[in-house]
Design a protein around this nucleic acid. Sequence first.
DNA 1: CCCATATGAGACATCTTCGTCTCACAATGG
DNA 2: CCATTGTGAGACGAAGATGTCTCATATGGG
Lengths: 217, 217
Amino acid sequence: MSHMGYGCLMAVDRDHVLRSAAALLTRKSTATMDEVAKGAGISRATLHRHFAGRDALVRALEALGIAECESALEAARLDDGPASDAVRRLIAATESAAGLLAFLYTENQLFEGEEQHEGWTRIDDRISALFRRGQLSGEFRIDLTPAWLTEALFGLLASGVWMVQSGKGAPKDFPRMVVDLLLGGALRHPAPPHDPAPRDPAARDSAAQDPAAQDSA
Amino acid sequence: MSHMGYGCLMAVDRDHVLRSAAALLTRKSTATMDEVAKGAGISRATLHRHFAGRDALVRALEALGIAECESALEAARLDDGPASDAVRRLIAATESAAGLLAFLYTENQLFEGEEQHEGWTRIDDRISALFRRGQLSGEFRIDLTPAWLTEALFGLLASGVWMVQSGKGAPKDFPRMVVDLLLGGALRHPAPPHDPAPRDPAARDSAAQDPAAQDSA
DNA sequence: CCCATATGAGACATCTTCGTCTCACAATGG
DNA sequence: CCATTGTGAGACGAAGATGTCTCATATGGG
């Protein structure tokens, strides 16, 4: 135990194990410690030398997820330019960590009594602030709370991940799917440059967005 | 503890046990068979007399979820009127089963190899058909696949359930939150970023949601 | 009154996973 | 060459959940 320079090597290994565990647990959240070890190409004993137990592993994964999320927040420069563009940048920056986030998102659902990690509230606050900024600037609708928009962002991220994993969607469409639905929704109210016949204002109810909708059945 | 709180009728029917298990597992997806039994007010032995094992219980819950989902599909009359209204009816009709659906939605994620229940594909097909109908009628945008819209519908349902359960949102806002985000998205105005402002400013108000909403605190 | 049925309580063995431990092997450096 | 270190393999017991069983009880019908 004299001059071991094992610090660096351990860190690299540990990170690799962490990434591997994240990838595996994203696909199978009930994977065994043995499966995690095999997945990382190490033995269960070595896995235990890195992480005291399953709990410690999950916490490390949570810390990793928080770190990646915050680095995505930095990269997205949430305070620059239009809020909608910031949301686009945020989702794009989150893409590589989306699988891990999806795992942690569902994992958090079964923390019944425990309070959630303080890092998540910080992240939630920053994203909520972004949506609030967009509301104040008039970009975002004000009848949906920033908290709900934030929750929906994570929910749609998770849905997108699962959809890609199940093969029902292409990975390349992932960011666009999430962004387009979160920002624009399903309705086709994106402005068509040509407005054939402006209806009377009473049509603002449901399908009022686009008068081009008519007979279909 | 005092015995049965059900008066003279000790025959606890299977359906009551299922509902109770659904409610409990929605909150704590890792609940023990013993906890499920206690939650239903019966003993573990009786629980086992109704459902051979945990697996059978989960399958019964899945069947219940599918049944409730399909009855919601019926009640929503997906083929009547504008597709967006059908989506609204569908989400409203799904509300009472949303907790169970959220549980099953995440539960399905860890069925790694197994193929999913045939009932889910039927449901997915019907909802996808609804979105496709909306696309053909011009109500819905065509750059998001019906499959993704369907997935997002379930994802937002689950997110809404969790949000309410965590106390970050009011139950009464649940259907509106899901519907408004799924259909309309976060943007207040359809104008895409590359669309400066060619339209009459008054059009903003007509397309915007009721500005008198929000606060409600 | 007596019996059949359903239930609750609990014992019991089994299974899986987990955490810890030991031991042998390979690699690396002095 | 030898020592230190990290690793893999595997054994071992602990803990929890599960499935099965028995037994006592109560309820209701004949």
